[in-house]
Design a protein around this nucleic acid. Sequence first.
DNA 1: ATTATCTATAGATCTATAGATAATGC
DNA 2: ATTATCTATAGATCTATAGATAATGC
Lengths: 222, 222
Amino acid sequence: MTRNRWVSELHWRREGQQTRSEKTQAALLDAAEALILEKGTEGTSIADIANRAGSSVGAVYHHFKDKTALYYALFHRMTDAYAQLNAEASNPALWTDATVRDLFRGFLEISLTAAQRTGAAKAAVSAVIADHPALAAHYAEIQRETRKSLLKFVLERRDEIGRPDAEEAAAFAVDQCLAMVRAYLDPSQTAAKLQSLNDAQFIDRTVEMMALFLRLPPAKSA
Amino acid sequence: MTRNRWVSELHWRREGQQTRSEKTQAALLDAAEALILEKGTEGTSIADIANRAGSSVGAVYHHFKDKTALYYALFHRMTDAYAQLNAEASNPALWTDATVRDLFRGFLEISLTAAQRTGAAKAAVSAVIADHPALAAHYAEIQRETRKSLLKFVLERRDEIGRPDAEEAAAFAVDQCLAMVRAYLDPSQTAAKLQSLNDAQFIDRTVEMMALFLRLPPAKSA
DNA sequence: ATTATCTATAGATCTATAGATAATGC
DNA sequence: ATTATCTATAGATCTATAGATAATGC
């Protein structure tokens, strides 16, 4: 008997119609996420995941081809959300009247929103990546996209940049901005000061730093 | 028969006299490190490690109480090196005539040297931490020490800082500097521009950014 | 009648130990 | 004679499947 259709690329089932299925899948992924955070991937077994989700081992294998497929699904659940947000933010129509300051601010706001949505998922996904090095490439690709589109928008406003080495400095500043977001969001990075700030303060400080470095014109309405 | 003495805290044997022992232990840790990088912790078995090291399963258990002890040893091999370097750099005598610029520069140089020494270890250790969440606290503690001593030295030179909010800004800048080092060193972070720089360029740029942000006096000899 | 779930378990690991052998130390 | 190493394997997982039962869909 053919059990089901698998979306081979994503390693898990689409099937938008069955809400029962979706709930179970989500519960299993949530359970895996929580357990990985608590005990790491090595300490987490299929039975553990099924129990935590209030489900059974058999159900796990009904929904996921194997353990790797489950981990891949967990990975994609988070990265797909990121990739989509990034795609939306890359629409030039959103930024027609934006200054470089606005771009950095917008990027920071979007990143923080995304982080709030994904929540604990990110740390668990990091563990999954550590155990499945093949996934690292896809994750890096998404981040590369983000970086690329932000840099492109900044460079389209090159005339705002007061430095003679505008191009190089902009690339440096973009990397910088990404590094800041990571330090701010990652609780394992002991950036005590950053983490004592609230989102608005963090964004203000970071934009200010970028402006100083790139010698941007003063903010219009402040 | 009592097999051996274990240093319970570190979970592995000290024993500085037997070079044969030390070589085997190092080979086992090297093998574990390489395998974890390739296949993650979950995919790596004791037998794999023993084979890669040209050793045997029995030898592994002669040197390490259990698999966790081996992973802990791998973890400590890296973090001990970091902690020691940090302790050395925290000696005020080293920095008697240093400016704030010199402090940042010194910190960056030390971090890069440390990274070169530890090499691939860091990524493997990240995977180990992901699988043994208990270790995260110790790692964070070491980084907190580094952060703290750099910030202390900077604040002792508060008069160099041109900003009215010197204290807050210094803390922000220190976190910033740590975030930059991470982005520069971590190949999984897609900081394309940073990674295209060589060490000296990276350090110059970063120090410059800190100087702009904190409004430090211009460099003396440039 | 098709999809989702469960229980029970075969088969494949993998960890850790026991016991024997080889290498070093006195 | 003490320490380091090996081979072989018991016992404990853990993954994935088979087959039965419950829930939904037409």
